[in-house]
């Protein structure tokens, strides 16, 4: 079970003065249960790419298979696909519209055809899992703080119980505490429910800490598609396209250059810490 993209091309504004090739020849296989990070510069096509995955944008050419079925087939049910592939847009709090938080989270499950009771149950579960205090459930979503709004919006997608969860820059505009909370929450979901998670971000630190596979996009093409360690080995090439490796990677390279035999493949602070500790202990012994 997976999502397969076969030579997907997408052209924006075809036949106008503003025609641009947003995606060119994308071939990817997104396996079940993976935690994938998509990184890329602004305008590299990452947002366009993820909107293909639940059929919101139709590719100009190429095919997409969800669990072996071509999603552009005449008799393929796109709504069913959207039930199973949940997409949280950038600034998802802008889509809130109901009079209470609870009703807003119920919107997705109700569209899935669930009864009122069942939808409510899903909403409770989703709101609890994103850590919203119960006292807020019946307040207007417009009275919440930015971080709470965002969590409500994420709950709105989680309540649909998707098998694949895609998040487009879920931490944009949040403070560091709010950012860690959201990311830890997503990581926990991935572990507990075993769902596929695709995280779009341009923060290397976020991506390196959580994901097991990184897809680097540049000018509508896949530049790298590998484990974080392998991708960050190319930190110089990443820089040339306006990206960067996590800061610890730079630190480790610098230390190595100055004669300290550390592991330059460390991508998280914890790994760097362990490697440094090991080297320093050896040095003392």
């Amino acid at each position: 079970m997976s999502i397969i993209l076969d030579k997907v091309n997408y052209v924006y504004g075809e036949g106008t003065a503003y025609q641009t090739q947003a995606l060119s020849d994308i071939n990817l296989e997104l396996k079940d249960g993976q935690f994938i990070g998509i990184i890329g510069h602004t305008g590299s096509g990452k947002s366009t790419l993820i909107q293909h995955l639940n059929g919101l944008i139709k590719a100009t050419s190429g095919a997409i298979y969800f669990n072996g079925q071509d999603i552009y087939d005449e008799d393929f049910d796109l709504r069913e696909l959207r039930n199973r592939v949940g997409l949280v847009f950038q600034y998802p709090e802008h889509q809130l519209f109901e009079t209470t938080i609870f009703d807003d989270v119920c919107f997705g499950p109700k569209n899935q055809g669930l009864s009122k009771g069942e939808a409510g149950l899903r909403a409770f579960e989703a709101l609890r899992s994103v850590g919203m205090p119960e006292s807020l459930y019946y307040q207007s979503p417009f009275d919440l703080s930015g971080g709470q709004k965002r969590r409500t919006a994420i709950a709105g997608v989680l309540a649909m119980k998707p098998e694949v969860l895609i998040l487009d820059e879920p931490t944009a505009g949040l403070d560091p505490a709010g950012r860690d909370e959201i990311l830890d929450l997503i990581a926990a979901m991935h572990k507990e429910r075993g769902m596929t998670v695709i995280l779009v971000s341009h923060s290397m630190e976020d991506v390196a800490k959580y994901v097991e596979r990184i897809i680097v996009m540049n000018q509508g093409r896949v530049m790298y598609d590998d484990a974080p360690k392998e991708v960050f080995r190319h930190y110089k090439e990443l820089e040339s396209v306006g990206l960067a490796a996590p800061q610890v990677t730079y630190l480790m390279h610098e230390l190595k250059e100055r004669g300290l035999n550390v592991n330059t493949e460390a991508t998280t602070v914890l790994e760097a810490y362990e490697s440094l500790l090991g080297v320093l202990r050896k040095g003392r012994a």
């Binding site: 909107q51 639940n54 919101l56 709504r79 959207r82 039930n83 949940g86 997409l87 847009f89 998802p92 802008h94 889509q95 919107f107 997705g108 569209n111 899935q112 709105g156 997608v157 649909m160």
Partner: peptide, 13 residues
């Protein structure tokens, strides 16, 4: 366009 897509992702019709 964006809001429409976001709601369609939540099953709106």
């Amino acid at each position: 366009d964006k809001i429409m897509k976001a709601q369609m992702a939540r099953g709106a019709d």
